Amino acid sequence: MTITRNETRDDTLLPGAAVIVGIRSLLIWAVVAGTMLAVFLRGSMSSCSGGVTGSGGFLDADGQPTDVTPMCGSITVSASPLVYAAIALIVLASLTRILGRADTVDAALRIINNARMVIVVLTLVTFVVGYWAIMTARVDDWSNYSLLYPFPFATFDISTHPMGANG
């Protein structure tokens, strides 16, 4: 049997090949989304609330001499591990849903496309919330501060130390 140019090769493909290609695409999107979050959603700020006088004494946040060592600190924001778990859960749930509910290839591809869009939206919302959280973080006094915690999208790593203790 010879195949002419007008014939298609669809009948020679593995049954369900379109679904396998869709699943591969979904996995690639999930890995890329997780990698982008790990690489690009990282921000930090650091400061010291006070300073040192010319004679070796300390200044507080208002510029007044003090005997108490001023506090320094840093904040680092990154994607929450819950976001990575949610991406994995979306992939697993969509595969389970395909096995349980999809009776046609079109239904399976629709489930895969919906899962892919949920991953994209979750990634974009995590980027926006994470960048908003670090951009709005302002600390004037490290001994008394408050931050708006962006749970469950991002997590803060906060460290404080007396001035001069860490460099």
Rank of each mutant, 00 (worst) to 15 (best):
L92C: 01
T53F: 05
T4R: 12
D60P: 10
T76P: 02
N6T: 07
L13S: 11
V91E: 00
L122I: 02
N144Q: 15
V32W: 11
A165C: 01
I119L: 01
L124Q: 08
S80N: 15
G63K: 10
S94M: 04
P70N: 07
G34P: 01
V121C: 03
G73E: 10
R101P: 00
V77Q: 06
T104C: 08
D60G: 10
I134F: 03
I3T: 04
G50Y: 05
L124M: 13
S55V: 08
T96L: 12
I111S: 07
L14C: 06
N113R: 12
N144P: 00
L92T: 00
T12C: 05
V105H: 02
V31F: 06
N144M: 05
I111N: 01
L41C: 14
T12P: 00
G164T: 06
S46K: 12
D141C: 03
D157Q: 13
P65L: 10
V128A: 15
I90S: 00
G34S: 13
W29V: 05
A33I: 01
L13P: 02
G73N: 12
S47A: 14
S146T: 05
W29Y: 13
R42N: 14
V125H: 06
M1D: 11
T123P: 05
V139P: 10
D62Y: 15
M117Q: 10
I134H: 03
V129Q: 08
A61S: 12
R97M: 04
D67N: 13
C72F: 02
R97N: 09
I111H: 00
